[in-house]
């Protein structure tokens, strides 16, 4: 059996006085709301194919009687987009019209930035190479190893503790005391080397 929606576009249209079926009543109300929204410039993007077809008829009637026109701002935007499309530049976000001349410049900006960066990097490499000739004997202070006594440095405690026999495994406190004493000696030696100052 054909439903109301099936024959909306192709079925015969009843006379004005024919009592509507509930389905037709509901569809008519839905269409009336679509017309409402369209008249106020808020046409919903999603609707059934039947509704869209009928709404197009309504818009054709309105357009022919001059009731539909493009707002000046929309018109400017369309022109701007068309010019941009023609020169192959990407479209900007809505509402942000950029003159075509500036758009043309913008198209080259990434290339200009990339080119400039490459040149600067090449110049920096060349300068480093020219300013640091090999074999001058001037070593960087960072590269020089600090000459300090071993007791001032961080070092393993293996030599102090030695291998731990199984039956001395519980003497951890004694081992910690030995390590502590060794490190305290190092601290004192360093402090004395500075005349008692920390």
């Amino acid at each position: 059996m054909a439903t109301q929606d099936d024959d909306t576009l192709t079925g015969s249209v009843p006379d004005p006085d024919t009592e509507p079926a509930p389905a037709e009543l509901a569809h008519a109300r839905r269409f009336a709301e679509l017309v409402d929204k369209t008249l106020s410039g808020r046409t919903p993007p999603a609707m059934s194919a039947d509704d869209r077809a009928l709404l197009e008829v309504a818009t054709v009637i309105r357009a022919t009687h001059g009731s539909v026109e493009l707002a000046p701002s929309q018109e400017r935007q369309v022109v701007e987009d068309a010019l941009r499309q023609a020169i192959g530049a990407p479209a900007p976000s809505r509402g942000a019209a950029v003159p075509i001349a500036r758009a043309r410049v913008r198209r080259w900006v990434p290339w200009i930035v990339a080119g400039t960066s490459t040149l600067v990097a090449a110049a920096a490499v060349a300068m480093l190479w020219l300013r640091a000739p090999a074999g001058t004997g001037h070593e960087s202070p960072v590269a020089r190893r600090a000459e300090v006594p071993p007791e001032w440095t961080s070092r393993p405690a293996d030599s102090l503790v030695g291998p731990i026999a199984r039956d001395h495994a519980g003497d951890a406190s004694a081992r910690i005391d030995a390590i502590f004493a060794d490190r305290l000696d190092g601290f004192r030696a360093r402090r004395l080397a500075r005349g008692g100052k920390p």
Binding site: V13, P16, A28, A32, V35, I61
Partner: peptide
């Protein structure tokens, strides 16, 4: 209003036809 909605709906269908 409900009847008018039906009238307009049918009117647009008839116009389209």
């Amino acid at each position: 209003i409900g009847t008018f909605d039906v009238l307009l709906f049918r009117a647009v269908r008839a116009f389209r036809k």
